[in-house]
Design a protein around this nucleic acid. Sequence first.
DNA 1: ATGGGTGCAAAGGATTTGCAACATT
DNA 2: AATGTTGCAAATCCTTTGCACCCAT
Lengths: 145, 145
Amino acid sequence: MKEKEAYNILVNSGIRPSVQRLAIMDYLLNHRTHPTVDEIFTVLGRKISTLSRTTVYNTLRLFADHHAAQMLTIDERRVCYDGDTRPHVHFLCERCGKVIDLFDEPVPVLTQAREVNGNLVVDAQLYYRGICAECQCKEKYILNN
Amino acid sequence: MKEKEAYNILVNSGIRPSVQRLAIMDYLLNHRTHPTVDEIFTVLGRKISTLSRTTVYNTLRLFADHHAAQMLTIDERRVCYDGDTRPHVHFLCERCGKVIDLFDEPVPVLTQAREVNGNLVVDAQLYYRGICAECQCKEKYILNN
DNA sequence: ATGGGTGCAAAGGATTTGCAACATT
DNA sequence: AATGTTGCAAATCCTTTGCACCCAT
């Protein structure tokens, strides 16, 4: 079933399915860790031994262009991707670098392209930055010891 | 007056004013182009001949950490900075790479740190992406000729 | 056989690091 | 003297590019 899901998303987004593209979309759907190119390359490269970094770069960009995935530029160092295309807030922990989904925060919903001051808005992203619950715990622990 | 403004922002933000820091803050206040490190280095380097790229990197990061300027990660290729710390939307044109301020769009205002699901939110950024008015014009022109 | 897709190696660019020199208190 | 700041060069890391090969239609 799960493999079917990746296939359907690609076809519905107008992307020709290939072995690599299906594997990468499948990875996105099953790992809600907001993976980077490198994470995907490292993990999938073990299964598809010929997989190249270039293909991962090309594929993820293709997904983003076709709105089959969200490209996140919240981390200043590297781009990461989210297979969940529903609008939601992303939180970056400045300590550990983790990206967390926040589904209960209000987001500007952009169901279709919208005009603002003559500019055509195609995509919207709301980013929060701060310190995640886990890292706050660690810091309190260190202070008390 | 203008130089005073840069000075005041630094001191009020708890940043020791140095020649370089004042010049960089002054540049930010007088150029609402969302400059990159390279833009600032190139322009200011002509006045302060010893200025180094490293210092520009360090200084801008310092400003962002002290909330004396906003760090924008809207462009996946490079970080840029905004001297205007009022909350507002940033629009990136995917054609020409320009970043435009949108002050009339609703933004989640974050006057102070806020807790969301145990995570401490310190900063919020709302980014729009699309095609700017100018680039739309150009494209229509090309289509009709 | 044609166009799209992939992989490799090299190049390109942005950012960080290590360290010595310098300024400021 | 001590601390914070700066500058240079080298290193690092992410991403793109050019090109040859391959696969499917």
